[in-house]
């Protein structure tokens, strides 16, 4: 658990952090989102001490981070940044091995870890000898994730890690990261300005504005607790549509039917957003999905009921 208490930081007249407190729970991905200049990156960098706050305290697992030398602290925390920052003079495997080598692991263990991470992020092992400039943006980003995970840190700090890749690749890598996080259950603090990304990846979302957290909640209930003009403006009137991306047809309560040949079929892993789009254009055609060999009818009403349940409880 990362606990930040009463964090304050000013740059001249600008207040980047304004007496801000926040807890990141073990195993959750907490997404910090806000307009640029709201202080989200500053907050993230106070945790690995790239930024020293004017006031406030941070503990990781009840231990104050100032108990460690900055380098020692940083080696225990995975760090992933926008633009990746892979070292251009090192091969992919040497890039991944950076922190394990700083921690003086033995070489066979490092090599085994490199293979494991490449497999985990879906990169071929033949990439080990490649140089960063030979990789595509998405591949480099995956290597960046491998490097952050290399020493198996419990805590992962991600500063707009997928901001610099094209939209197609970004979605792929977001989904891959979500899968990875479901398996690894790291304690992640993820900074982004992309609401879609926050909704897709966050277990909870903290909305930041002018150095303060305006609201902290699950993506489903964001904007529900206290009516706030800034929050509403930020999440937009179409927010309900956006959170449909978080659930799949398997999350719905559906009615079993007999399948017919003219039915339009959807994968059960389709997101509700995709399902809704298909329903909107299907006209009178029936839309079904098959879960465990049983066909179910998908209806707009089912999606509405699900949305009501998750958003308004």
């Amino acid at each position: 658990m990362i606990k930040l208490s009463h964090m304050t930081k000013t740059y001249g007249a600008i207040t980047a952090l304004d007496d801000l407190s926040l807890e990141v729970r073990n195993g959750e991905c907490l997404v910090l989102i806000g307009p640029s200049g709201c202080g989200k990156s500053t907050l993230l960098k106070t945790i690995n001490r790239l930024v020293e706050p004017d006031a406030g305290e941070i503990t990781i697992h009840q231990k104050p981070i100032h108990d460690y030398a900055p380098e020692v602290l940083r080696r225990q925390i995975g760090y992933c940044i926008q633009g990746v920052g892979l070292f251009p003079h090192l091969s992919v495997s040497d890039n991944i091995a950076v922190v394990p080598r700083l921690l003086k692991w033995d070489e066979p263990k490092i090599q085994a870890r490199i293979d494991e991470l490449l497999t985990l992020t879906g990169l071929p092992l033949s990439y080990k000898t490649k140089r960063p400039h030979q990789l595509s943006g998405g591949e480099a980003q995956r290597v960046g994730v491998c490097r952050a995970l290399a020493a198996d840190p419990e805590v992962l700090l991600m500063d707009e890690p997928f901001g610099a890749v094209d939209p197609m690749t970004r979605e792929q890598i977001q989904l891959a990261f979500r899968e990875l996080q479901r398996r690894l259950k790291k304690t992640v603090l993820f900074v982004t300005h992309d609401l879609e990304e926050a909704i897709l990846l966050g277990d909870r979302i903290a909305l930041m504005h002018r150095g303060k957290i305006l609201e902290l909640s699950t993506p489903e209930s964001l904007g529900q607790s206290t009516p706030n003009e800034t929050v509403n403006q930020f999440i937009g009137a179409d927010y309900a549509l956006r959170i449909l991306r978080r659930s799949t047809l398997e999350d719905l309560k559906l009615t079993a039917v007999q399948p017919q040949t003219e039915d339009r079929r959807l994968e059960s892993t389709s997101s509700l957003k995709e399902a809704l789009a298909v329903l909107l254009e299907s006209g009178n055609q029936r839309v079904i999905t098959v879960i465990d060999h049983q066909a179910y009818r998908v209806d707009v009403g089912d999606i509405m009921a699900h949305l009501q349940a998750v958003r308004y409880g």
Partner: peptide
């Protein structure tokens, strides 16, 4: 040396001297 590379090096936990000798100097 690009700022994202030096920041990555620092964030990974290189000491000041390691950062200069292992990252900046080779580049």
């Amino acid at each position: 040396v690009a700022p994202d590379i030096t920041e990555a090096a620092k964030g990974m936990g290189f000491t000041e001297i390691q950062q200069v000798f292992k990252v900046e100097f080779p580049l």
